[in-house]
Each structure stands twice: as structure tokens, then as C-alpha cells.
Design a protein around this nucleic acid. Sequence first.
DNA 1: TTTAGCACTCGCGGGGCTGGGGTGCTAAAA
DNA 2: TTTTAGCACCCCAGCCCCGCGAGTGCTAAA
Lengths: 372, 372
Amino acid sequence: MTVPQAKAKKSISIDNAPEGGVEHINERAQLLLKTLIERYIRDGQPVGSKALLADTQLDLSPATVRNVVADLERLGLVHSPHTSAGRVPTEQGYRMFIDNLVAIKPLHSGEVQTLAGQLDASADTAQLIERASSLLSGVTQMAGVVMLPFQKQVPLRQIEFLPLSENRVLAILVFNEQDVQNRVIHTGRAYGLPELERIANYLNEQFIGKDLNAVRQHILSEMRGTREHVDRLMRSAIDMAHQVFDGEAGQQGSQDRGHDYVMAGVTNLMGYEEMADVTRLRQLFEAFNEKQDILDLLDKSMQAQGMQIFIGHESGYEVLDNCSVITASYSANDEVLGVLGVIGPTRMAYDRIIPAVDVTAKLLGAILNQRN
Amino acid sequence: MTVPQAKAKKSISIDNAPEGGVEHINERAQLLLKTLIERYIRDGQPVGSKALLADTQLDLSPATVRNVVADLERLGLVHSPHTSAGRVPTEQGYRMFIDNLVAIKPLHSGEVQTLAGQLDASADTAQLIERASSLLSGVTQMAGVVMLPFQKQVPLRQIEFLPLSENRVLAILVFNEQDVQNRVIHTGRAYGLPELERIANYLNEQFIGKDLNAVRQHILSEMRGTREHVDRLMRSAIDMAHQVFDGEAGQQGSQDRGHDYVMAGVTNLMGYEEMADVTRLRQLFEAFNEKQDILDLLDKSMQAQGMQIFIGHESGYEVLDNCSVITASYSANDEVLGVLGVIGPTRMAYDRIIPAVDVTAKLLGAILNQRN
DNA sequence: TTTAGCACTCGCGGGGCTGGGGTGCTAAAA
DNA sequence: TTTTAGCACCCCAGCCCCGCGAGTGCTAAA
């Protein structure tokens, strides 16, 4: 259905490092391209030579500008919807704009304050993520998306059992003060409280401090190993642990294996004329619900670390054709935990939105850093 | 902003009982109204006298039909978008259609099977609700909405405490095998495990079998009463209980007091031409996110019990102007727990959708009935 | 009460016209 | 070689107009 491969995008350096790719385009042309895109982003209409000229300090005639712009068109950076309309940036134009030309507008401290203030460090992780997503969408007026932090890495702090009924046992996994998970497991027979306590003790000894992945490994090797031993306690313990840790879909949702994300402000997208086509919009929204495609994209940009920008086709997904996706990974303790970003029409105010995404990612990382 | 009062709607009897309000409109006119609405629902275009006639067995001339339809228009049941277009039902027309004329098409057993099969009785409540909502939207091709069951009534089965850190304690509330809640509470000092166990024992004695409301009552009276006593254990127990039960926003979300709902398939709405106006649609979606208005509406129809149908303005909320809302309350043990329904354009296939909502409500009720 | 006949009304789609913003090209100027 | 003025040209957007078709309301006769 959709082409599932995104072109590798080199990661964006916020501080506007000049890089290769500009060789054959002189400074004046760059300036004009930059102004053209800025203007187009501002008011969404094809910009003609006169208007373009008016936005620069250049002392030139429109005719000259026309020549330059014609060059830009030949290079594929700009394109005119029909003869005798102004020019509109192409995806490649945007690409160059972002890689070399854009003048990032840092958030003014007020905005940073609100962001920082609204991200409540004391909330549990799920709420925190939700919050971040909503802030992102609020600040940028686009759709905000935050991937849940990659839980595999979180070390287990405590495990407890509670008998529920005849052969149901409630397992409680404590990771930290904000993250506690419950799982109901089905046992072959009834267990008493003391027995469960001993099992818990045993497992705690074994597992505390290990992350879920390590725990799973451990269990597997134990299961292979214990064939000969007949210690009943250990047997039960391992059986239970197996159910707890491999029985996916714990009550809190299966966020740790399959990844998941939280979106906010999708309705913002309904405000932009370039998104006016209801059926396309619908497809986009449905992709948001399916999650798979978006998730793949987020995964990719998480691996790339730092900021990533996908313009239109670059994402590789048809539904995102006239959208741009700006992501930044967030990390704690020097480890990438996830990725967040915004999705909006290709024509967006990159100069404001890039730093917004950047800052949010850093803030979120900082908060998660305080937990372990 | 939106008019917050919905007209009281008499509840709908599925079996099509003839009731008052039809006095001054003879059988033939009724038949014509019914056919007109059916046809309009089918293909969404104003229906003229000839077309209308073709859909009935009546041996009449178009002219006669025109006369009758003109009467219907005078009664406000039908309305023509401009001279020389066919007629379109008004809200009142739909009202009469639903109250007196509609011929409900029972779901064919296959559909019931799927519904029943897909509603997984073993899932926890949250998943179950999600599922119901999604099924509802899938079957009807509208937006499905299910209110979370009203938790106040669920009796507590067990409460346990676990020390987390210096002065954090994890409280675990078990209601039944599908519903377990965690809450982290902040204590003034550190508690040891044995102490917590004694507190839990005490609270279990007091609270088991009571629903959350009763528990809260109990705590309040205890707090007033225990001033004189100085039993330290009891004091701590009550303090903790207070935090657990009145500290709203437990980790699982605050579903029990403020109500909440789960929607699914909102994108379905984007398929209907009558919803083509993006800005209106956006307002609608935003209302879905705000939740407040929708929640009020659901609350109202829950109190009314049984099925409720709001056509256009009848809901009292501007955003729902050209929408109909069909709800049915669901109950277990003869107690209304919540309400579910669908939201879609006024022009919807009531004959199919009414039973779908009805059946889903009954199925959900039946499943919840097995828990206590 | 029903029906045929008829004049009338609108919405919709297509065609033609116009104005304005914008282009590309050419030839001259810098 | 680059810049510029001039010019012909293009084409979209809006507008008006017109004709068609579906459907109506009214009237007068059955």
C-alpha cells in the first residue's frame, strides 16, 4: 500500500552548519530562495518576481530576479503551478532551505517557561507523555506525537504477589515510583500468601535491578536449566515469572514490546487549506489510528538520534505526501528512550517549530533522567 | 457557546408502538412520509413526487402525491431546499419517522454472532469498553462511543499496601479479577511491611464488600469520630484510607468520579458528504476531545435509561446540529452502569443502527453482569 | 377527491469573456 | 557577461449568460 522505506536523512544540526550541496548556487540565488520560501510559508501563495524582490534588500530589477528564479526551477528547487503564476518551493527546495538556509528562531524564554512549567515531573510516565504530546501540539499548532519511552531498559525494583482467587494470582511489578504494573496470572493450583511471599523473595533476589529483557533471558535459561532440580519452590517461582514476564499485554497495555505513541491535536491539521481534501485527511487520520506506519517512521528516526526532518515523500509513506514530520529523540542517562515530534503540512514555520520540538525533547529527557 | 439543555426525549420502544402525535395525518400520508424518508436516507437527494410514487405500491398520480407532500410540508415534517427540488425530511419528520414509522431491521444472526464473538469477556474492563466502542463503530460505520461503567457501585474485594520508598506507599485496590487499581500515596513517615499489613487487615475488615462511595462515607465518619481515640494503628489506617480513596486521579485514570468515555471510528464521519464542511467537522472533533458536552449528553440519556435518540438540535449542542445521537444504557444486575451509542449524520440508516446499538448494549451488560 | 395540463422556478453545468498577475524572450544597456 | 526594459503571451479566477432538466403549484376538468 504505502512504500515502507524512508530515505535516510542526515540529521539536522540546529546551529545551521553549512554543508555540501550548495556548490552550484551562488549567494544571491540562495538569498532569493530563502526569501521565497519564507514568504511562501508566510502566506501560502505562489510568489512572483516582484513580490519576492520586495522582500529582499537587493537593488535589482524583477527581470533579473526572474532569471535567477528560472535557474532555481531548473535545479528543481522551485516550481510553478502553471505558466504565469509565481513559484512554490518543491520538496528539494524545502530540503535545501532546512539544511542550509533556515534561520532558526529560538523560542523566547516565556515559551520555554510554559513548556517547562507544564511538564509535571511528578506525574506518572503515561501522563507525562500525554502532556508532552499535548504541549507540542499546542505550541506548534500541529499534530504532536510522542513515542512511549522504550521500557526494556528500566530496571525492575520489586516484585510482589497477591492471591486473588482459587487459581488467580496478581503480580505487581514496581519499576519506580511512577511506574507500577499489575498482571493477573492463572496458576494451576491455589497458592497461599506465605508461599507467594517466598516465591516473591526468591524472584526479587534474582531479578532486582535487571531490566525486563535481562529478566526474560534469565527465566529462559533457568527453565532450561532446572529440568533436573526438583526444588518445588523454585519451579513454581520460575513458572510464575514466566507467565508474568512473557505473558504480554499486561493490564497497563503492551507498551514495552511493540512500542506505542500518543498523539494530540490532530484536529489542528483541519485548519490548514493544504489539508482541505477530506478524503486525504481521512486517510491520514486513519494512518494515525492504525499506528503501524507512523510507528515505523518514528522507529527510524529514533535510531538516527538527534533531530530528523522528513519532507513530503521523504517519509516514504503515501499518506504523508504533503506533510512534513519533524522529530527529535529524547534520552535520559545518555540512552535514547524514544522520540517525539510534530506532523503538519509541508508548508510549516520550520524556524519556530524545529526549536519547539528540540526543546520539548530535551525537557522530557531531563525529567525522565531523574527517574531510574 | 452551546445550549446546554437537551429536550427530554421519550424513550424509544423498539417494537414500534403507535403513540400520540399522529392524529391529523392519515395513513396514506404516513406511508408517503415513511417512504420519502427511507428513500432520502438511502440516496441522500431530495425526493420528488414521481420518484416517491415509484417507491410505493400506491395507484396514484404524481399530482396527488404532490398535494399530500405539500401537506406534510405545511406540518413541518418535510421541507424543500428550494422551489422545484424534491423534499427532504426535517428533524420533526425524522422524529415522527422514528417514533411511529420506522420498520426496525433486526440484525441478522451473523452480525449478532460477530458482535458477541468479538466482545471478549475475559478482557479487563478498559479493554472491553474499547472493544465495544470499536465494534459499534465498525458495524454502524459511524462514530461509536461507550461511557465507562459507573464504578461507584463495584464493591471492593481487597486492599493491600506495599512500601515503596522512604515515605511512599503503594496501595492496591482489588475489585475483581479484571479490575485492579494502583495508587501511590505519600505518607508523613516511613512504614514497615508488618505495620502496613496490620493496617491493611484493619481496612479489609472495615471495607470489604463496600463500594467506593460507601467506603468514602465510612472514612469521613471515622475521621470525625476518632478524634478522642488515640489508637495509633487506626489513626494511620484512616489517614491512609483517606488518601487512597479521596486522592482522586489514581494511576488508572479518574474514571470513577468524573465519568469518561471511549470513542472509536470518528474518521468514519469523514466519509459523509453532509459532514464535508471541514470547519464544522473540526468543531465536532474538538467537542469529542473536550468531552464535556458529549459527557453531559450521555449522562442525560443514561438517566433516562433504555434507548434514546437525539436528532439534530434535540441534543441541545450546536456542534451536533446535523448529527443524530443514538444511545442505549447498559446495565448489569438490574443496575444501570453506563451508556453507549453512536454519533453520525442525521441522515443515517436508523432501521439498522438502532438495533445495533441496542444489541451491543445488551451484550456489554451481559458480560459485565458476570462480574461483581 | 383525484388528475391532467401547464406555466413557472431554480440549480447546475458549460461556454465565453475579461482583468490581472505573472512569465519568457529579445534586444539593448551597463 | 550581466542586468534591464519592453513586449507578447499565458492562464487562472471570477463573472455573466444561457439552456437543460427536474420538480413544483395552480387551475380546471373528471
